[in-house]
Amino acid sequence: MNDPLAKIKPWFQGVSLFWPVLGLGLLLIFNAVFSPSFFHLEIRDGHLYGTLVDILNQGSKVMLLAIGMTLVIATGGVDLSVGSLMAIAGAVAAMLVMKISFAMAVAISLGLATVAGTCNGLLIGYAGIQPIIATLILMVAGRGLAMLLTGGQIITFEHPSFVFLGNGHFLGLPFTVTIVAIVLCFTLVATRKTAIGLFLESVGDNEKAARYCGINAALVKVMVYAYSGLCAGIAGLIATSNIKAADSSRVGEFMELDAIFAVVVGGTPLTGGRFSLVGSVIGALLIQTLTITMYNLGVAPAVSPVPKAIVIVAVCLMQSARFRAQILGWFGKRRIAA
């Protein structure tokens, strides 16, 4: 009862953050040794600049996707369509922002992404289609839809509010950091201060038992895919704002995979059940740090996935209790042999 951590523990329950934090820590130490400018921060015009800030700023999209993806994966599913939903939201917002009010443009584009996510959820929850297939449909078709909307053109815009979204500063930090913080806090409260988190974990851990308890598993699934769609929409607006243009063919490409990596690295098992939103955000930061480390070391972009893959595999292996036992077993045997 006197445990000082007792109050914050529920936020991290069930999932060990030890390995992702260790991975991120090691990566930062590596950078501290090999690229001295990595930790250099400076203040220009009252804004903070530096590599660490870049990681937070550029990692914001994957962090947002990973938050939505965490909930999806907690129910035992996966959402492959988030990259394409980013493209749709970006395209719609870019087209509308010059014609109607900024608030309306944002609302419509995010609403559309949420509806698209809901469709995923309906296919999975009520039609019983496997998540990987259901979301694959939208992954492929969604990008086509975005291209159709923009007529295959890159749509540019000049709109100070929209540009601020992905490039502005707030409290000395990029505004994207604020967006991520708000979404993360909202999601934490929505899952842990209600029973939604418990329902997600129950459905992911043993769907049949959850249904027998009277939980509407199908509705739970619709909700998580809708939310994942919303998160993807926000990420899409940021990505579009970043380059001041909607490039439907490139926005969010392969980003669904980064988001899945982030969730898994963050300790939420792909089989569903216990989840950790904080873990996923740390996982997303780890992946972004890795990407930037690669740039700093001058690794050609074409080969950078290889070292990235190695680090991700290493973190995942370390999380596996069986793998750790195996390693310990080897060492144990060797000691006996010696």
Partner: peptide
Amino acid sequence: SEGLIPHLSVRENLILAMQASRGP
């Protein structure tokens, strides 16, 4: 296969049906 939510705690398993009837 039809009762336990294996990775959740005793408390969470115990309140699950009641929570389900209260809604999310």
